[in-house]
Design a binder for these strands. Structure first.
Length: 439
RNA sequence: GCUGUGAUGGUGUAGCGGUUAGCACGGUAGGUUGUGGUCCUGCCAGCCCGGGUUCAAGUCCCGGUCACGGCCCCA
């Protein structure tokens, strides 16, 4: 037997129905915030990702040589391709740009629930504008999307890697080093809350480990806008500029108006995210019930355009939403609540079965076409069974209505339209307009 | 990268060294030549793959594959 490659999935019609409803919902929200859909290739040149994320990423790439010996790879994420597209195609488009995207990405890593080798990401990028207001537009869209699909109990955490870098370089840590700079290591320790690791790093770099105390206090500031006041004091004592704190404060109050009341939103300056190219605000969304793979969304402000020879005048801001993970969370929450509808709007539209019974199908084909043109979903019965079996089949396949056309009907130019949900049946004239009225 | 658990028709399962591998749902063909979401009958369809132990392996052992967990990681 031939089986699917590890970490991939098939989506049957029943599953796709839900996924399409979810995508449509996200698309609607993106458009409501002005983000226009784009699409980039499934594979790109290998350089695109090694330039952005360093050569170490290659081991997680589906990289290959094509028949002309080009180094290519399936895309592991979508931010870099979109930025490449902007530099290739939209250099002179008026800024700012609001772009959205959806598609599969590929990473070679251990597959488990919520982590697939082929996974789907929905994301947006706001390019060519920066500052608290631009960031608020992006973060509020993320919250808006999660609310719209009915996700509950999620936590938004907002941080700022710019501030973090200022602190760490202020202490004397270097931003250069292989394979990982001391600053990057420190940020990783902070993100994990690994204080021993941080102390060790400080001492090997000749920094007074007492500095960890301030950072620890900072990491414990985990709450609303009021935590920024306390942060100010600590940062002042460390001689770190406060401009970014003011920006964060402004960002939070804008979000307050644009997307009020997410289940939980916290500021924590130790949220670091893994990416080197983030320059300022970063944020992520977690759903606790997903366990280890609970991060469903992440993003922030970054600079990438310089990789493509464009000026990085302004940082861009965006996020990627883990399509599969949000769906898993929704499914788990729906099950817990005993709900059958997982994604709002996933219930299929009513559909109708045209059932010619002991008459030549050609006598109803024109009607089927007309009904479809009017906008009804109509399926022509192809099996020619007796009526009992056909109704049974129609019922199992989720049809709302069945149009029964038998020999007597053709003779009298009428037909029976039966509603399978109510069981009601009525006789109407055998033409598309009359039928359409009662479907 | 490390580690734990598991794998029987399409789905859910029984079988724990010797059975024609059982059951339910499902699919399909009928019972019914114009009315389903009751019922009855026939049929379809399975031991993940490769080695080994044994007179005999779905069952025990080793390896692989895949799935699900726990660490590591997660651009």
């Amino acid at each position: 037997m031939v089986q699917r490659p590890r970490g991939t999935r098939d989506f049957t019609p029943a599953v796709m129905n839900r996924r399409l409803a979810f995508e449509k919902l996200l698309e609607t929200k993106a458009l409501s915030h002005g983000f226009k859909r784009v699409q980039t290739p499934i594979f790109e040149t290998l350089d695109l990702f090694t330039a952005k994320s360093g050569p170490g990423v290659v081991k997680q790439l589906y990289a290959f040589q094509d028949k002309s010996d080009r180094s290519l790879t399936l895309r592991p994420e979508l931010t870099a391709p979109v930025m490449r597209m902007v530099s290739d195609e939209m250099r002179s488009s008026p800024k700012p740009l609001r772009l959205s995207y959806f598609g599969q990405c590929f990473r070679y890593e251990e597959s488990k629930k919520g982590r697939y080798r082929e996974f789907f990401q929905y994301g947006v990028e706001l390019i060519g504008a920066s500052g608290p207001l631009a960031e608020a537009e992006v973060v509020s869209l993320a919250i808006d999307m999660l609310d719209a699909c009915g996700l509950q109990d999620y936590e938004v955490r907002i941080g700022h890697v710019g501030i973090l870098r200022d602190i760490l370089t202020g202490l004397g840590l270097s931003q250069d080093g292989e394979p990982e700079s001391p600053v990057a290591s420190a940020m990783r320790f902070l993100d994990k809350g690994d204080w021993n690791g941080l102390s060790e790093l400080f001492s090997t770099n000749g920094i007074d480990t007492s500095a960890t105390q301030n950072l620890k206090t900072l990491s414990e500031l985990d709450g609303g806008i009021e935590t920024l006041e306390s942060a100010r004091e600590i940062l002042s004592s460390m001689n770190v500029a406060l401009d970014s704190v003011d920006d964060l404060s402004s960002l939070l109050s804008s979000i307050e108006s644009l997307a009020p009341n997410p289940p939980s939103m916290k500021v924590n300056l130790c949220v670091a995210r893994g990416l080197d190219y983030y320059t300022g605000m970063v944020f992520e969304v977690n759903v606790a019930e997903l366990g280890g793979e609970g991060q469903v969304l992440g993003g922030g402000s970054y600079k990438l355009l310089h990789l493509f020879g464009l000026e990085d005048l302004d940082p861009s801001c965006g996020f990627g939403l883990g399509f599969d993970r949000v769906l898993l969370a929704l499914e788990s929450q729906a099950e817990r609540a005993g709900r059958t509808e997982v994604v709002p709007g996933e219930t299929p539209e009513p559909s109708t079965l045209m059932l010619p019974f002991k008459v030549d199908a050609s006598s109803v084909l024109a009607i089927v076409k007309n009904l479809r043109d009017i906008g009804h979903n109509v399926e022509l019965d192809l099996r020619g069974k007796n009526i009992g079996k056909s109704l049974d089949w129609a019922s199992k396949n989720g049809f709302t209505n069945v149009i029964i056309v038998g020999p007597q009907d053709v003779e009298n130019q009428q037909c029976s339209v039966k509603n399978l949900i109510s069981g009601e049946q009525s006789v109407v004239a055998l033409n598309s307009d009359s039928i359409s009225e009662i479907l």
